Simulated scan of single mutants.
Amino acid sequence: MGEMISMLILWVVVIGLMWFLLMRPQKKEQKRVQAMLASMEVGDTALTTSGFYGVIIDITDDDVIVEFGNNKNCRIPMQKAAIAQIEKPGAE
């Protein structure tokens, strides 16, 4: 009986460790991305996940419109998290 309890405790520890090592960093990253998307403003420079830099020219509830130069615009859905990084103008 004591062997079964120690095995159960071992499984609980292993599952807790897996959550701590895998799930917790993922949740932190999701919070970081949500905060970044919430702080976006028109005029910020956006880096997309595909590696393109552009300037945000319009933000709606569902989409972000980014200009990549020479009047080349792209509509990016907010839910897809295709924006990897935001740089504020004047920030170094």
Results as ranks from 00 to 15, higher is better:
residue 46 A to R: 00
residue 36 M to E: 07
residue 19 W to F: 12
residue 17 L to H: 02
residue 33 V to W: 05
residue 92 E to H: 12
residue 80 K to T: 08
residue 39 S to G: 08
residue 53 Y to F: 15
residue 62 D to E: 14
residue 59 I to M: 04
residue 73 N to G: 02
residue 61 D to F: 01
residue 54 G to L: 01
residue 9 I to N: 14
residue 20 F to I: 02
residue 90 G to E: 04
residue 80 K to F: 03
residue 82 A to R: 06
residue 23 M to F: 11
residue 15 I to L: 13
residue 54 G to C: 03
residue 25 P to K: 02
residue 23 M to H: 09
residue 14 V to L: 10
residue 32 R to L: 08
residue 37 L to R: 07
residue 89 P to R: 14
residue 21 L to R: 08
residue 59 I to L: 14
residue 39 S to K: 14
residue 73 N to R: 14
residue 31 K to D: 07
residue 92 E to Y: 10
residue 32 R to C: 00
residue 6 S to E: 13
residue 71 N to T: 06
residue 15 I to Y: 07
residue 50 S to K: 14
residue 67 E to L: 05
residue 88 K to Y: 09
residue 81 A to S: 08
residue 74 C to N: 09
residue 81 A to N: 13
residue 26 Q to Y: 09
residue 91 A to S: 15
residue 6 S to F: 09
residue 13 V to E: 07
residue 36 M to A: 01
residue 8 L to K: 12
residue 27 K to A: 08
residue 40 M to I: 11
residue 32 R to V: 05
residue 59 I to G: 06
residue 53 Y to H: 15
residue 44 D to S: 05
residue 86 I to A: 03
residue 72 K to D: 08
residue 62 D to N: 15
residue 92 E to V: 06
residue 46 A to P: 07
residue 14 V to F: 07
residue 36 M to L: 11
residue 82 A to Q: 13
residue 3 E to I: 07
residue 84 A to S: 15
residue 11 W to T: 06
residue 58 D to L: 13
residue 18 M to R: 06
residue 74 C to Y: 10
residue 58 D to I: 00
residue 51 G to M: 04
residue 72 K to N: 11
residue 34 Q to V: 04
residue 82 A to P: 01
residue 1 M to L: 09
residue 69 G to D: 03
residue 36 M to W: 04
residue 18 M to V: 13
residue 76 I to C: 01
residue 13 V to Y: 10
residue 72 K to G: 00
residue 8 L to Q: 12
residue 19 W to K: 08
residue 7 M to N: 13
residue 80 K to R: 12
residue 9 I to L: 12
residue 35 A to E: 15
residue 8 L to C: 04
residue 62 D to G: 04
residue 44 D to T: 03
residue 76 I to D: 08
residue 88 K to S: 13
residue 7 M to S: 14
residue 15 I to R: 06
residue 19 W to C: 03
residue 87 E to G: 01
residue 73 N to M: 13
residue 51 G to L: 07
residue 69 G to A: 01
residue 14 V to S: 03
residue 60 T to K: 02
residue 81 A to E: 14
residue 22 L to D: 04
residue 10 L to T: 12
residue 25 P to Y: 05
residue 3 E to D: 12
residue 38 A to W: 02
residue 76 I to V: 15
